[in-house]
Amino acid sequence: MSFSLNNYLEELRPLINLDCGTLTVDGIDVVATTMAQKYLDLGWNVKRIDCDIAGTGLEVRNKPQADHIDVMLIGHMDTVFPVGTAAARPMTHDNERAYGPGVSDMKSGLLSVVYALRDLDPTALDALSICVCMNPDEEIGSLHSETWLKSVAVNAKHVLVAEAARADGSLV
């Protein structure tokens, strides 16, 4: 499949034009539902995780019965922005960058994982046990999702975080 930046940006837009700051449970649930559907469309297993007052987390697997995880990918669905920010600063883009609340931290990371897995060679996909975890409370230190994330990560050979680098290129 060939990559279309315009399609990617249009798929990103509803994730950005949504208030989903930490503990904004309704917005985080919309992100969780949207992301869950993308994985269900790929035929993956999606498990919703109750993260107490922070809302819903997602645990997505291509091989849910596997006792190990070859690659775990982690991203968060919350932002630091208060309610009203999405309406005040909806997603825009120019020839170089996209702008809006959470565009790089970390909605583009969540969507990039989907894009990578959509295009993963079927032979590699068949050989690997992959788990994608999305938590709702990273911006406050993953207080309500830490126990769950650790319980999954302990079974993973490799764990990758899908958060974009800082503007100067340094890793997060």
Rank of each mutant, 00 (worst) to 15 (best):
I16R: 09
P101G: 12
P136I: 01
K38T: 01
G27M: 04
A162Y: 06
K47D: 05
I49N: 08
D67G: 13
G169Q: 10
L40F: 14
T92H: 10
V159K: 11
G84S: 11
N45I: 03
L73G: 10
D78T: 05
A36G: 00
P82G: 04
Y39H: 00
L5N: 14
M35W: 05
V132Y: 15
C20M: 03
E138N: 12
Y39P: 00
T22D: 02
D26Q: 11
I16A: 07
L120I: 15
I16K: 08
T147R: 14
G75L: 03
S170R: 10
N95S: 14
T79R: 13
M35N: 02
T34N: 03
L5P: 13
I140W: 01
R48F: 15
V83D: 12
N7S: 14
R166W: 00
A153E: 15
D121R: 07
E146F: 01
N17E: 07
V159N: 10
A164I: 02
H93I: 03
G141N: 06
D94V: 04
F81G: 15
I69K: 14
I16H: 04
R118A: 02
W148E: 05
K63A: 07
D26A: 15
G141I: 09
D26P: 10
W44P: 06
G109S: 05
I16L: 05
T56V: 04
Q37A: 01
V132I: 09
D52A: 11
L40M: 08
S104I: 01
N62C: 07
P82D: 05
T56K: 05
D70K: 09
V113T: 14
E96P: 02
P82A: 00
P136Y: 00
P14W: 02
G43L: 11
C20I: 00
W44H: 06
V71Q: 09
S4D: 11
L143T: 02
A116K: 12
G21F: 00
D19R: 08
A153W: 13
L171P: 06
L125V: 03
P101D: 02
